[in-house]
């Protein structure tokens, strides 16, 4: 495990909220790529499955000053406190149906292992995990369009975004066939939502690889945040933030925005706290 750590990937994402138009292409592409079934009634959003979900944020001001931002939210692939791999959901799963891939930083979900206790859903503050309340169903004839690379899920289990891991498996297969298994070009492994975003708001790649675009935008800090030892990989880009960063979940999905109010929505702050933090945001000493 140690030796794998050194050459380990850390796949992550940065989403430019100023580019996102809220069109929902990411949600649609994700659903079709990952064989997400249909519900009779999709209007109850607390019971329907969308691995990638777009939230609507507003600055809360009235008419002429109103601003709205759409925030796509896939599974955040938390590294857990100190980025040791004990993400909120992985550490609580009683049957090891979800684990943390130290080689990729991706949090897995094994459908045939999950028995549906839903503890992981309670532990996840992002609501990124979804339960199959019903048997999966596709409209007549649509089963033929299912991807053979992603197994469909049965009733009574939890599922979530996998960063399109099957695309990583395919990319690795190709790298093996080409004889250079350690070299997977950036463009060979991209998630469905990334490739589907018409605005190019989503950037995906290896956060550990300085040649990848995601690394260049995020500039992750390899050292723990001096203000909070649980937080690792904080962005050194002042415009980049993570969701609920101070909980120490160490997510691998970063968000980018020029607007201060948007960045402030990323986490909870006590009164007056934000004004002290915002100027230091993203510049934790090592920059």
């Amino acid at each position: 495990m140690k030796q794998e750590h050194n050459k380990a990937h850390k796949f992550g994402m940065v989403i430019d909220l100023d580019k996102c138009t809220g069109c929902g292409s990411c949600m649609v592409s994700c659903m079709s790529e990952n064989n997400v079934p249909f519900k009779d009634d999709e209007s109850d959003k607390k019971k329907s499955i969308t691995w990638m979900r777009v939230y609507k944020l507003t600055n809360g001001k009235s008419f002429p000053d109103t601003e709205i931002v759409y925030m796509p939210r896939p599974c955040q692939h938390c590294g857990g406190k100190g980025d040791h791999g004990h993400s909120p959901c992985v550490s609580v799963c009683p049957a090891t149906a979800t684990d943390y891939g130290y080689d990729t930083g991706i949090v897995s979900q094994i459908y045939t292992r999950c028995f549906g206790c839903r503890y992981c859903m309670g532990a996840c503050p992002y609501h990124a995990r979804y339960f199959n309340w019903w048997d999966p169903k596709w409209p007549e004839g649509m089963e033929k369009y299912l991807s053979p690379d992603v197994s469909p899920r049965m009733r009574g289990i939890v599922e979530k975004c996998s960063f399109c891991y099957h695309r990583y498996q395919a990319a690795r297969d190709q790298a093996y066939a080409e004889g250079d298994k350690d070299n997977i070009p950036e463009e060979n492994y991209q998630t469905a939502c990334t490739t589907a975003c018409p605005a190019g708001a989503i950037v995906f790649g290896d956060l550990n690889n300085p040649e990848h675009k995601v690394h260049q935008i995020v500039k992750p800090d390899p050292h723990p945040d001096p203000r909070n030892k649980h937080v690792v990989g904080k962005s050194r880009n002042p415009k980049v933030f993570r969701l609920l960063e101070r909980l120490g979940t160490n997510t691998k999905v970063y968000y980018l925005s020029d607007r201060e109010w948007v960045r402030k929505q990323g986490d909870n702050y006590l009164e007056g706290e934000w004004d002290k933090i915002k100027n230091h945001h993203g510049d934790t000493s090592h920059g």
Partner: peptide
Amino acid sequence: TGHQGYCFQCHK
């Protein structure tokens, strides 16, 4: 390889 592998290595 020294490690049994992570779930996603063989599961989809």
